[in-house]
Design a protein around this nucleic acid. Structure first.
Length: 599
RNA sequence: GGCCCCGUAGCUCAGCCGGAUAGAGCAGCAGCCUUCUAAGCUGUUGGUCGCAGGUUCGAAUCCUGCCGGGGUCGCCA
């Protein structure tokens, strides 16, 4: 028999436990058969609020297995629920929905629970046997500053990691540094040119194939300062490794600074080079293992369809049998020059994640890598023996606009809008919120003019303003209720001690219900790996709060501060605190500031 | 051509694990307001959920095919 939960900090879960208990009581009384699958039983807010506070689909879900009509089951469950001390009214409607109206005290208790939990409201405990999750995001090449395209993945990954951690997952945030491919050699050569420039040489235009950006000038200077002219006349093979290392380090320092400006954090920066360097070549080891397991073989691939292959050469190559795992074609691990493909080292990298104990992997990629998902999932299945799962989240293109007009991004190399440009122009809060205010796999318009607009049209402002407005009420309320304790915990206690039963206006109760939904939202958003749901929820909550505030214009008795009624004011402050709490926790998960006032 | 994503109101988008009469903002229309914190408020019009089948008590949601848009298509990362 399931426990009945009285925990109002998660009303929906608690009510579900009561519905489940009611069903189990019916089973015990032999009014329903044994072994029913209760996994699909849901408790959720009804679409139409006039139907009640909560609805459950239990009767419809169980109907088939129970061999009874939905409404018959619903009647039986309803009978039990009518006796529940949380339940005010039960109604059966439509094809078999059970609509519940809860006693107002439940919503008040939920509000109290939210206030008392404060910054931890909605946080889920880390289960005993929690599986650690690895979230990899950004992983931009260390060959230059980050551009706007990287921005969305960075923010998405960071917010997703925040969300999962809050939902009770042990999360490691990871950045894969592609510091082993041919492109970092190009970086080194480009830096070497800047080095000669720093020594006073006229280098003229940057040759085709090298990185022309000014951001390499400081690298050249650093090399000149460190080495003088001792590298200048040496053959490339002698200077390249050192120059490459310094250039990569400086690029990574720049990237980290950019990420910091966006409030994006990582726990681990994992070097691709570390996989292939030294005695233990992890890529080679991985290939050998996979070959032993029959997942790697020498073979030929058919020429690619589509684009006419100009330099296609039909040759035998080392292939990973990704077709065993649902991919369309087997994938090469070695290039024609014998070096590893990116895919090969990426397999070794993901194998490292598995080795380090992660069975839950999430990669955040740009849309242009979509075709890569199947083979990577195949690889993860292969290196983990099917024990680890990889979820790849694709973030779609961001269209940068200014007042509706596309921002021109010249193709001329080196001349692009950097992430830093955008953050400096509109601020990290606007960037982060807007990047999360759309489903990750939908294309996003980012308008530099609109996101700094202070109006209802701008969700960033609207939500932040909700928080600021709430804080402002507290500043003004001092005159009526006196000073509240400074300490947040003490203040919370003072607030929940107020006469919350006086919060009986429909607008107030609606806000309480919305606050009570937050834990459920966190659960669902975390399970779906969809942080954008938080942004939408916060907008709705802020909207309800603003709407209630505005009602006070016409109906002064609805205002939060009632001059001659300190007790009522105290109760309403509790409601405001609930709103503030949820807005601040939610914005925190998105990595957006919850300001005390707008300027 | 293969694969992936998208297609929901005039526009921009939500729609949670299949659930009740498909939602929000903007624009439009009709009123109101000049403020306990100003960046206004309230109400309202508007839909063949791309099309056609299928699965079932029930489909915007799952499956198949097609149409339209985007991405991608051995060794780049």
């Amino acid at each position: 028999m399931a426990e009945i939960t009285t925990d109002t900090s998660h009303v929906f879960a608690a009510v579900l436990s009561r519905v489940t208990a009611a069903i189990e009581a019916l089973v015990a009384a032999k009014r329903l058969p044994q072994n029913l699958d209760l996994g699909r039983v849901l408790v959720e807010p009804p679409r139409d609020p006039t139907h009640g506070d909560l609805a459950t689909n239990a009767a419809m879900v169980l109907a088939k297995d129970a061999g009874k009509k939905p409404r018959e089951i619903a009647e039986a469950i309803a009978e039990t629920l009518r006796a529940d001390d949380w339940v005010e009214a039960v109604a059966i409607a439509g094809p078999g929905f059970i609509n519940l109206t809860l006693k107002p005290a439940v919503w008040r208790d939920a509000l109290k629970a939210a206030i008392l939990a404060g910054a931890d409201y909605g946080r889920m405990p880390v289960p005993e046997a929690a599986k650690p999750v690895n979230v990899e995001y950004v992983s931009a090449n260390p060959t230059g500053p980050m551009h706007v395209g990287h921005c969305r993945g960075a923010v998405f990954g960071d917010a997703l990691a925040n969300l999962l951690a809050f939902a009770g997952k042990p999360v490691t945030r990871e950045y894969y540094i592609n510091d082993a491919g041919a492109q970092v050699d190009v970086l080194a050569r480009s830096a070497f040119l800047r080095y000669r420039e720093a020594l006073g040489e006229n280098i003229g235009p940057i040759p085709e194939g090298l990185y022309p950006g000014d951001y390499l000038v400081p690298v050249g200077k650093e090399l000149a300062a460190r080495y003088g002219d001792t590298l200048r006349d040496k053959p490339e093979a002698e200077w390249l490794p050192d120059v490459r290392k310094i250039a990569i380090d400086m690029m990574m320092a720049m990237i980290r600074a950019d990420l910091e400006a966006l409030n994006v954090r990582h726990d681990v920066f994992f070097s691709e080079r570390s996989l292939v360097e030294g005695t233990a070549d992890a890529v080679a080891r991985t290939i050998v293992e996979l070959r032993d397991a029959g997942k790697v073989y020498e073979g030929r691939l058919p020429p690619p369809k589509g684009a006419p292959p100009e330099d296609w050469e039909d040759r035998e190559q080392t292939l990973f049998r990704s077709t065993d795992f649902g991919d369309d074609i087997d994938r090469p691990l070695l290039k024609s020059d014998g070096s590893y493909t990116y895919f090969a080292s990426d397999i070794a990298y993901h194998r490292s994640k598995v080795e380090r104990g992660f069975s839950d992997l999430i990669d955040v990629w740009g849309a242009d890598h979509g075709g890569y998902i199947k083979r990577m999932q195949a690889a993860v299945a292969a290196v983990s023996g099917g024990l680890a799962a990889l979820d790849v989240k694709i973030v779609q293109l961001v269209k940068l606009l200014r007042a509706g007009q596309p921002v021109k991004m010249s193709k001329r190399a080196g001349d692009f809008v950097t992430l830093r440009d955008v953050v400096d122009e509109v601020g990290k809060d606007a960037v982060r919120f807007m990047m999360l205010n759309r489903k990750n796999d939908a294309v996003l318009d980012f308008d530099l003019a609109k996101v700094i607009e202070q109006s209802r049209d701008n969700p960033v402002f609207y939500v932040q303003y909700g928080h600021a407005r709430g804080r402002s009420v507290f500043r003004h309320a001092r005159e009526v209720v006196g000073e509240l304790p400074e300490n947040p915990g003490e203040q919370a206690k003072a607030l929940v001690a107020g006469p919350l039963e006086r919060l009986d206006d429909p607008g107030e109760i609606a806000i309480m219900r919305q606050i009570a939904q937050f834990p459920r939202l966190i659960e669902a958003a975390a399970a779906a790996h969809e942080p954008h749901r938080i942004a939408f929820y916060l907008y709705d909550l802020a909207s309800a709060f603003h709407a209630h505030w505005n009602r006070g214009n016409d109906a002064p008795y609805l205002r939060f501060i009632i001059q001659d009624d300190p007790q009522l004011t105290l109760a309403r402050l509790a409601l405001v605190q609930g709103v503030i709490t949820v807005l601040s926790v939610g914005l925190g998960l998105l990595g957006v500031e919850a300001p005390d006032e707008m300027r």
